[in-house]
Amino acid sequence: MTQKTPPHKAGSKNRENRLVWITLAIAVLLGLADFFYEQHGHFEVEHIKGFYALFGFAALVVLFLIAKITSPLLTRDENYYAPTDTVAEDYPEDQLGREKQDV
């Protein structure tokens, strides 16, 4: 597998890596912020340092896992309900304003 990445894809790859690092930096800063102010909340758990950060992260991971496991059961081919459904239909062309950009 020595396929070369096309230049424009390589650029987007770099951008995405940068985005990950920036997000990670902000996330760490926000997580550390919890140690420097008095936390308010209605429940005990809200006083755990970094509770919202961990909760958000864990919630999405759990959601993804459940979605990954259940999606084969809960999805079917696009034509499954055809012709009584719009999923497999094209949007009527006469109602679109399909225009390309002037290059």
Partner: peptide, 12 residues
């Protein structure tokens, strides 16, 4: 706390 929630979801 709200910023934490959003940023950590994005990170995940």
């Amino acid at each position: 706390t709200q910023l934490q929630l959003v940023v950590f979801v994005l990170l995940a």
